[in-house]
Amino acid sequence: MIESLINIILFTMLAATSLAVVRLHNLFAITMLFGVYSLLSAVIFVELDAVDVAFTEAAVGAGISTMLILSTLVITGHHEKNPKHGPWLPLVVVILTGAVLAWGTLDMPLFGSLDNPIHQHVAPRYIQDSPEEIGIPNMVTSVLASYRGYDTMGEVVVVFAALIGVLALIGINEKKCAKRQYSSDERPPRPVLQVMSKLLIPYIMLFALYVQFHGDFGPGGGFQAGVIFAAAIILYTLTFSLDDAFDLISPRVLRPLAAIGVLIYGGTGIVTMLLGGTFLNYSVLAGDPKSGQHYGILAIEFGVGLTVATVMMLIFYAFVSRGEKGKVE
């Protein structure tokens, strides 16, 4: 009873948020509402028991993508331009798509029912045998990293491809602004924020490592950990300045690391090939298949975390350096 009430309220808020997004014209407000939208979906995912998805949605949807969109608004301007064409064609397309989707739900297996095909065919094997075959408690990680590890590698490559796209289009402006000296009677800007972010950032990084290595047991893993780690650096960039961030971690260091992350993932697969298994068959990595799986998952999760963290930082650097330094020149 209460649960369905919670559901109804959450979905109502979701719908209201999307309507407000349509109605508003200030892009900052819209971006924030998109963050709210992602957060609401994350809550709904928790409610549906999809905790790993919720984790990712909170970290990626509400977190890093909001920040990336915000940093582009500095480049593009923050007020919506009047569209050149009328809303009718998109509206028709959207309504048609929605209608087909609704039509598709009519014969869908009943939601939550136990004898649904999705609960009957592949999933039972994952649930029953993964503790035996892979030996880690979080089945989502088992599926992502081992049973369907090749897809996850593909997704890491997608993240890498996104970096390639951003570098091709705008690149990173590494030229430094002249360092501003503060005179003694003038305090640096944002003193409170700077002090607190200095205190906070180490703990955020520690938390990122926890999420990275706790992924076998609870929700988490390389994607989320990478995003959280990047968020720490982003916080530093925001409270200090881009030049300070470049001094901390230079894009020259990050760029090779992004490639190395992908190579760690792929290299694990190559090693398993050389040891006589198929690509990404971690069982051959050690005498005991279970510990082999464990090593393999540890290695590839590290590769994922490395690539995601560095790519997110680099993309953020690219946007901010374009937005802020473009203005100075």
Binding site: F28, T31, M32, G35, L39, A42, V46, V51, A54, F55, A58, A59, A62, G63, T66, M67, L70, S71, L73, V74, G77, H78, L193, I204, F207, V211, H214, G218, P219, G220, Q224, I228, A231, I234, L235, L238, T239, G323, E324, K327
Partner: peptide, 29 residues
């Protein structure tokens, strides 16, 4: 109650998000 990690992540993201909005609003307007 063992899913509190998500709440923690969100507390973090929310804070950084607010700082980010402020910072970029500042540099635009």
């Amino acid at each position: 109650p063992d899913f509190l990690d998500i709440a923690l992540v969100y507390a973090l993201i929310n804070f950084i998000g607010v700082i980010a909005v402020l910072r970029f609003v500042e540099s635009v307007t």
